[in-house]
Design a protein around this nucleic acid. Structure first.
Lengths: 226, 226
DNA sequence: GAATTTGAACTGACTGGTCAGTGCAAAAAC
DNA sequence: GTTTTTGCACTGACCAGTCAGTTCAAATTC
């Protein structure tokens, strides 16, 4: 399930896997290609309409595949959805972690790491807005069907942020008073909501622009300080 | 028969209103009380399951009312939902605005106003977690059905925050460089996501505790800066 | 003040339609 | 010759919305 391997430096966008993956590395079976097409079809439709309102026939049609194929590849509609969730969050966490690691490697501070992760988050949302939408829409639902999958998947993403905060506290860069899980949530929320609003209501703005605004907020440069 | 009939929406408070059992809170009419029960039933179910997965039969049952009553009171399932949205966001914006005004009246700064609004937001989410869940889940959906309602309703809430930021910039308290709409979104997101995580995963914590953590983040006291 | 009327509010069985999932024989693809 | 995909008919559950009929408190009449 690991995304494409990044060999060397050079802004390694580890994300490509979500789009039509032609041959390249691992088991690029025919089956894998079909599943990929189904993911792509499903993610858009479910983001637009929600899980229940999206029919399997629609997904198959959008993917250009027969309905039977859906069931040949996935046990059920909800299994398709769960695997889609895991797939997408895997890409996101890999990208966040990569940003944090790169910053560390380059000797940046923990604030730099957070800033790099904000950017990585924005890049991800820019590329996969539908997935992000869908994720947010389902995350806090009390529905038992996918609750366990969602919990796991949420924890994966938030944990990356928490790790950076923890290191920052340990290294004296952040106040010992901060509440790590809550601050991590709040930071994720900040990026998530700002980015979704960006995509939904001011899509013309550049990523750099949005990033700059969030950076400012992160560093408390909004009110007087500095 | 009666002076009570009105062709428009206006529900006149009838003479016997005081005597009626449910005089206490909002609803004075019988009809109003029923609608209230339906709102409450719908908000919980839709937050749990999503709009499409929630059946009208379920809503009626939970409200202790016959299915026909739902259709007597609302033109359709989605009209019920739209009115529910408007209703809830009305409560939220009133509460935010009240917090901002109170701070201004007491001579607080704009940061104080933002802080008071964060608290008001937390109090709201604490009281109506289901509504908040549902709101977040639907807000960025690309579905055409209620997009207009959602846009209006979103703007109402965010505008309150934007106003405070604008005043703060005008008064020199905030940097002129800040991007008002984006910062407002980000702040809303910060509170929203932190609060939802609080309710979902660490429900035992106190509101003050959560508020303190977010205050710290707002004032940039996380990283070194004072 | 008892009897009667009125109509808004409510009820729940019913209908027409939709959709997840199945089954399977034949065709492609590898 | 095995794996994967196709196409399509079918089923049984489920569900939004309807409608003919019931309830009951207030208004009206006598």
């Amino acid at each position: 399930m690991s995304p494409t391997v990044t060999s060397t430096g050079e802004v390694p966008v580890t994300i490509r896997a979500m789009e039509s993956s032609s041959a390249a590395s691992g088991g690029s079976t025919r089956r894998e290609a079909t599943r990929q097409k189904l993911y792509e079809a499903a993610v858009t439709l479910i983001a637009e309409q929600g899980f229940s309102a999206t029919t399997v026939d629609e997904i198959a049609e959008r993917a250009g595949v027969a309905k039977g194929t859906v069931y040949y590849n996935f046990a059920s509609k909800s299994v398709l959805f769960e695997e889609l969730l895991r797939h997408g969050v895997g890409l996101l966490t890999a990208s966040l972690r990569e940003a944090a690691d790169r910053t560390a490697r380059e000797g940046g501070s923990k604030v730099d790491a957070l800033d790099a992760m904000i950017r990585a988050g924005l890049v991800f949302i820019d590329r996969y807005p539908a997935f992000t939408q869908l994720y947010v829409a389902e995350l806090w639902r009390t529905n038992r069907t996918w609750q366990s999958t969602l919990m796991v998947v949420r924890q994966q993403a938030v944990a990356v942020v928490e790790d950076v905060l923890r290191d920052g506290v340990a290294g004296g860069e952040f106040s010992e008073e901060i509440d790590i899980p809550l601050t991590a949530s709040a930071l994720v929320g900040m990026v998530l909501v700002a980015a979704l609003d960006w995509k939904s209501f001011q899509a013309e703005r550049s990523l750099d622009d949005v990033h700059a605004a969030l950076s400012r907020l992160l560093q408390g440069r909004v009110s007087g300080c500095r």
